[in-house]
Design a protein around this nucleic acid. Structure first.
Length: 272
DNA sequence: CAACCGCCCTGGGAGC
DNA sequence: TGCTCCCAGGGCGGTT
């Protein structure tokens, strides 16, 4: 479900209710996520959440000596609820807070993660150590991408979805960014012109920022921590619009192809 | 090494 | 109505 904008929106919606509060207790109902939830999670009691950060598509809850690392996978979401409200099917763990709220993790497909890292050197953890640059940071710029594309045979859409190069750009925003940049997703990375690389940088940032501003993309069931849906799906130019008229050129029909088994959308007229 | 493929899961929608 | 098949927002790990 969630790409960078949805994870960021989730973080923003919950942080004011969690940072500064104590975690009273954590209950796990289903520990088999992408990785088994470690049993050491149960030892987290009466610990203050110092801050919450997003890194790539991960949420990091900073505790005294540890970091709770949460990834929402394909279908995960977090919801802040009042105590004693009913659990839904696929609510896998609950974090009880000192302000009498409870943070619930819901994830039908269970591709998500809930791990406990040592705060010391946590960036060396194997899930974080290899991550590329944040797309909304200054490190995601023309010279960085030029270098990353140099003599690469991989197609550009796969390259911008490679989290060793740049993080947070998933299947929706990859298609959307390339549409705005007028670059065909099948174009070999090493053969891009400088102007195209520039446009990819500008438009990845633009798409992600615009989506965050309106709460992310709710295709099926994405909601932020307060239950609000996003509205970016109304702004999508190509994603999920196969055989529909391109909103820009108003003549061509959007095409759908598969790259690495991931659906990929583009306008054959606007993205040659 | 770069690039590819399988796989972890459940549920919704299409088609019959 | 109900079955079966295909597809879905991610990313690691093993193979070529």
């Amino acid at each position: 479900m969630p790409e960078l904008p949805e994870v960021e929106t989730t973080k923003e919606s919950i942080k004011d209710f969690i940072v500064g509060q104590k975690i009273i207790n954590i209950k796990v109902y289903q520990s088999s996520l992408r990785y088994p939830i470690p049993s050491s999670i149960k030892k987290i009691k009466n610990v203050v959440v110092e801050k919450i950060e997003r890194q790539a598509k991960y949420l990091l809850f900073f505790l005294k000596d540890k970091i709770l690392l949460i990834h929402l996978g394909m279908s995960g979401s977090l919801a802040l609820e009042k105590l004693n409200t009913t659990l839904k099917k696929h609510d896998h763990f609950e974090i009880f807070l000192s302000n009498n709220l409870v943070l619930r993790y819901h994830d039908p497909r269970r591709f998500g993660m809930f791990l406990l890292l040592d705060k010391k050197n946590y960036q060396n953890h194997f899930l974080l150590s290899h991550l590329g640059v944040e797309p909304l940071s200054k490190k995601w710029n023309w010279s960085y991408l030029s270098k990353a594309c140099q003599s690469k045979k991989i197609v550009i859409k796969k390259l911008i979805m490679d989290n060793k190069i740049v993080v947070g750009i998933g299947n929706i925003y990859a298609s959307e960014s390339l549409f705005l940049a007028k670059v065909n997703p099948l174009k070999e990375a090493g053969k891009l012109k400088q102007i195209e690389i520039k446009k990819i940088i500008i438009n990845t940032k633009k798409v992600l920022k615009n989506s965050i501003e309106i709460g992310g993309t709710t295709l099926r069931d994405y909601k932020d921590g307060k239950g609000k849906i996003g509205y970016f799906q109304q702004k999508l130019f190509v994603y999920n619009r196969e055989k529909q008229k391109c909103k820009k050129c108003k003549s061509s029909l959007i095409e759908k192809i598969f790259l690495s088994n991931r659906s990929t959308f583009f306008c054959p007229e606007c993205q040659k």
